[in-house]
Amino acid sequence: MSTFDTIPQTRQEALVEILLRLADDRLILGHRLSEWAGHGPELEEDLALANIALDMIGHASALYEYAAKLDNKPDEDFFAYFRDDIDFKNIALTELPKGDFAFTITRQFLFSLFSYFLYKELIEIVEEEQFNGMLQKHFKEIKYHLRYSREWVLRLGDGTNESKSRIQNAFNELWMYTGEMFELDKAFEAAIEHNLYSDVTKWRPEWRSFVNSTLTEATLTLPDYEQYMFTGARSGRHTEHLGHLLAQMQFLRRSYPDAEWK
């Protein structure tokens, strides 16, 4: 059953919805990053990307576990492995194929910067102790992801002609997927009322000017279009890529539902 456009009625429902949205973004992007394992441009970058992948999947796992407890689901695996693409609430930015190194770095930078602003706000307002503790713990790792990806944006932008054109292309391509980060639907509005989510539109200009100053420092140009922004993934209307990703990620668990680590 899809949770398509359902509106949370209670505080608890609003919380579960937020946990799942945060977790889905992190699981899907974490999985995309994990695809670099063994394929990184250098051994050191291979490790760096795998580390970030592990961090993000770890964040998702903690969020799912909490959601499972609140929502009377068996465990975190239920959310990761036994839902179909229409039930996933991640934004499209996180599900796009990994592309080249510049594409991966650009996406990580845009997403980690968004996470940075979001978590900073949430830590201030969220009253639930367990949720807030989780956010504080993950925030430290987000700061590192931001630092790593920002340093690479600077180096690729201000690097060779090839690296510069690749990362500029990545920004141009990904820009239309950044709109979804700042969309507020009924579920987010309900969560904002309960101090469970931040009014992201408030700090969107700050996010944008941080991107802009990084791009300027990297001798790159901020994509100058806002006309067309991709939308719909949060409520289940995903790109074609998510289904393929899930098929790969879920098949083992679904084929052997009772399998255990020995």
Partner: peptide
């Protein structure tokens, strides 16, 4: 030891490794 293009990236790579 690690490979890195410059000192700042060396620091990050060292942390990750």
């Amino acid at each position: 030891s690690v490979h890195a293009p410059d000192a700042e990236m060396a620091l990050l790579n060292a942390r990750d490794t």
